[in-house]
Design a protein around this nucleic acid. Structure first.
Lengths: 336, 336
DNA sequence: CCAAAAATCTAAAACCTTTTAAATTTTACT
DNA sequence: AGTAAAATTTAAAAGGTTTTAGATTTTTGG
């Protein structure tokens, strides 16, 4: 069955393609098409179930009604929840979402950005960048493509951001631990740690200690390699057990580390340690409601990242937002 | 900066647009373009960093190089893992993925299918359908759009499927429970239960009992409403505690129910019950490795659903697969 | 060196919209 | 009724590729 096109409607109705196109694009009044004609056109189009060819339209207008989303890993619940919320906002506004994962690989991110803009012609791009610096985005020739960066901030790069208050949330949870009488609080961070979210959380931890007159000790700060999480966590525990008998809390900067920590603490060798420490985690996951151990956590407004960033990119695409916008969303502490 | 187009390359090189287009599409040999010329064209194009306008190409060829994926909820790890794997296969093959969620809403699914085909011009569609029957897909006018259905089977509908052996996996885990000397095994199912995956799991449960000469008792089969999981699980537990003192295992048909069950079992009122039953779950999630209780589970080859379905849809799109294909992936039992 | 065959290459049409510039019809006024 | 102005409507161009049908150039063989 051949697809209906403007010409078919035109013949059927006796109006020109031009007129029909105008009415369909809501420009009937603007071009002075009489109300009666407009109604007739809309009725016929609805009856015949005609929809304009997307490619012809995009070719002519240069607009694809697609927004790209680039994240490290779309199977990560954090990002897939963001994706879901972005998608639903876009859909309500007649746009569609195209998602790609970089696998935390800079080269891959580059290729994806170029591919999306060049070959797919997205109208805008939402990115949780893996880059350490903004060089690529500074030098890109796609300066007229709307960009919104989420989750991670690129240092010294003036752009549109929708991020979480990692520093504040981190400081808050550490403060809470201190109020609960914790004095020796270890911090399990992740390597590579140049990603802004991690940096900010580390700083929140340090500053909270300092403000509460506790010393920041390097030997309490453990860096866990992202591809050796379990091993590094256990090594760190061994070290802490030996050198910090007064240890009373471990603060993990993400949920993967926390998971590994929980697994490790079930081993016999850490039995004693396990019973005397509190565990805190930046990021709240469902599992914390099920396990026996009480985990203190910081919950991130994940949905809001999606909603805010998609609304922002639409505004930019439609020229409603011209200067750079910085949205910082607050976290909330979950005591258990 | 204006985008380069075929004409610019043509002028620059002194070859016609036709020739350049042919070479770029790998049809140089087919049309008898000399090797030397082909090399020159490719070199120039690479240097000038030209990429064809996607919309013009799509308009002319009718191919968008987009595949649509429709699932109930993209923020569900099960689906987002599938999405990730689909995406990476597609990307390797020059295609892109467009994802949408239906929220388990049939009307929404209809609209999304029509939108993707009609307005977005996807070349193929992968769907985990929410529909109870295949009526919509039987009557759709998009019969020439390649479709692959994943995860859920529509009854009596001859189509391309990539699904999991829900029946077999379910029977296997129940068999295992029986071998472990369980005699009174409750089954927590989910409502609405017309979704094929659930039906199949229920049947696997029943048949395993029967084959092992155990009676299938309705009072042991509890239906949990998907929007009241926690309450229904607890009500069911109360009922079982009262009427089935010999209860020694509970088999949950998905991980949400298991999670609710674990939460419930922490309550005082179920303390005794908790200590004497084994728990089994269809679907293996990370959490099971962390909690103290040993959960027996069936692990689904989630990645393979994504890989298989995307390879299949590419084959169909490219005419390499003409008759309907049914892929049934095996599960594996995880004893703990 | 010439005609025919083979090897290369290209002009123009087609894909289907949207938009510009202009044509046609209607209304208003003398 | 006749003209100017206003209200509607439309023809044609533009957007950038791929493909068809045909043109041009080169090679081959006598």
């Amino acid at each position: 069955m051949k697809r209906l096109q403007l010409e078919d409607i035109s013949k059927q109705l006796g109006y020109s393609k031009t007129l029909i196109s105008m009415v369909l694009n809501g420009k009937g009044d603007q071009y002075g098409i009489s109300k009666k004609t407009q109604a007739a056109v809309l009725k016929a189009v609805a009856e015949l179930d005609y929809t304009p060819n997307k490619f012809a339209r995009a070719l002519r207008t240069g607009k694809s009604f697609f927004v790209g989303l680039i994240v490290a890993d779309i199977s990560n619940p954090f990002y897939s929840t963001i994706a879901k919320n972005i998608e639903s906002v876009l859909y309500e506004n007649g746009y569609n979402l195209m998602v790609c994962s970089t696998g935390e690989n800079e080269e891959h991110e580059k290729r994806l950005v170029e591919m999306m803009i060049n070959q797919q012609g997205v109208d805008g791009l939402i990115v949780a960048s893996t880059f350490k610096t903004a060089d690529f985005y500074n030098n890109t020739r796609y300066t007229n493509t709307p960009f919104v960066f989420i989750d991670r901030v690129l240092p010294l790069f003036n752009a549109n951001y929708v991020v979480i208050d990692n520093y504040g949330g981190s400081a808050e949870i550490v403060n809470h631990l201190i109020k609960q009488n914790c004095k020796t609080i270890a911090c399990f961070s992740i390597t590579p740690s140049y990603i802004s979210t991690i940096e900010d959380r580390v700083n929140g931890y340090k500053d909270a200690l300092t403000k509460n007159k506790l010393k920041v000790e390097d030997s309490l700060m453990k860096s866990i390699r992202f591809d050796r999480i379990q091993k590094d966590v256990e090594d760190s525990l061994n070290d802490l057990q030996k050198n910090h008998p007064s240890l009373d809390a471990i603060y993990c900067l993400n949920n993967n580390i926390t998971t590994a920590l929980l697994i490790a603490l079930r081993k016999k060798e850490f039995e004693k340690l396990a019973s005397k420490i509190k565990i805190a985690c930046f990021d709240d996951i469902d599992m914390f409601n099920i396990i026996d151990r009480k985990i203190i956590s910081v919950s991130q407004p994940v949905e809001d990242i999606g909603k805010n960033s998609s609304l922002l990119i639409l505004d930019i695409i439609n020229g409603k937002q011209t200067n750079k916008s910085n949205v910082v969303l607050s976290t909330s502490l979950i005591e258990r």
